[in-house]
Structure formats: structure tokens, C-alpha cells
Amino acid sequence: MAKIKLTKVPFNGTPEQETLLMNKLETIKDLPGALMPAMQTAQEIYGYLPIEVQRIIADKLNLPIEKVFGVATFYSQFTLNPRGKYKISVCLGTACYVKGSGDILLAIQNKLGIGNDECTPDGKFSLHETRCVGCCGLAPVMTINDDVYGKLTTADIDGILAKY
């Protein structure tokens, strides 16, 4: 594992979101162990933990920013990446995997230039490895939001993504 990759999606938080966060931080900032609830709240508000939001938390709780980042990257409940407008989930369950979903995943990664749980810089697509989606007969399978695509080959990828 190398360095953690940070999202290239620009931060687009609203003043309303910031007010919500600040109000919560104000109520918990003097409590011991305030960092976890602060980060959970922030993620509820923003959907992920952008750099800018981690800085707000560090300032308000008077903690070093590296402490916040360390916790954000330790717990799997936190994500540093926003979810795209279209969420692509590629099934890596046993059936899909033996039918070649690993290649499908690779093809999408190459096409979009993003890794697992990352989001394209324009915020359009995010890519997620997932386990069985319950239609092994269609393996290999991926979903884009509520659309299901089965019996995929790598040649299908460009055409499918072009629809979004």
C-alpha cells in the first residue's frame, strides 16, 4: 500500500451544511472523545469527509489535523471520497469473479482512471467493489444506481458508460 489517494472532486459544501456541522461541534467540543461523533456527524451531513471538513473539525476541537486524518483513514465507516452521481458497483462474488468480473473492474478502472471507492473528478461516476448482488445466473454483473447489467464482457463497458 502506498500513500492514500485523495479525491480530486472539488469541495462543494453549502453554508447550510457548515451551519449544521458547526452547531453539532459546538455542543460536543468540550466532551472527552468528541472526535468520533464529530466525524460521524460530518459524514452524515456531507456524505464523506472532505479535507475542508476535516480542517473544520480539527480547528473546532483543537486537535492536530493529522489526528483527524489518522482516524478518518483508520475506520472503514469513514470515507474520504464522495459518491458519484452514478454509483457503479462491480460484483466480485464467487460466481461473477470466476466469470471474469475482475477484468470488468479493471476495464472500468482504466476507462475512468479511478480505483475502488473513488470518484471521477467531475463527480459523475464512483466505482465500488461489491459482493453478491443476488443474480449469479447473470454473472458477471454490475449495477449502475438501480440499473443491472449482466453477462458482461469488457467490450460492453464503453457503450454502457456512454449512456450516462
Binding site: K3, Q54, P64, E66, G70, Y75
Partner: peptide, 20 residues
Amino acid sequence: VSVIGANARGFDTHIGTAFE
């Protein structure tokens, strides 16, 4: 000063800075 700390977890854990 606290500019370094442990980032990520498990086998991926490494000592680094905020936002790498």
C-alpha cells in the same frame, strides 16, 4: 507539533502526515 501520525489501518498502516 503533531504533524505525523498513523494513517490507514492493518497492513496498510503507515506513519505519515495529514492528507499524505
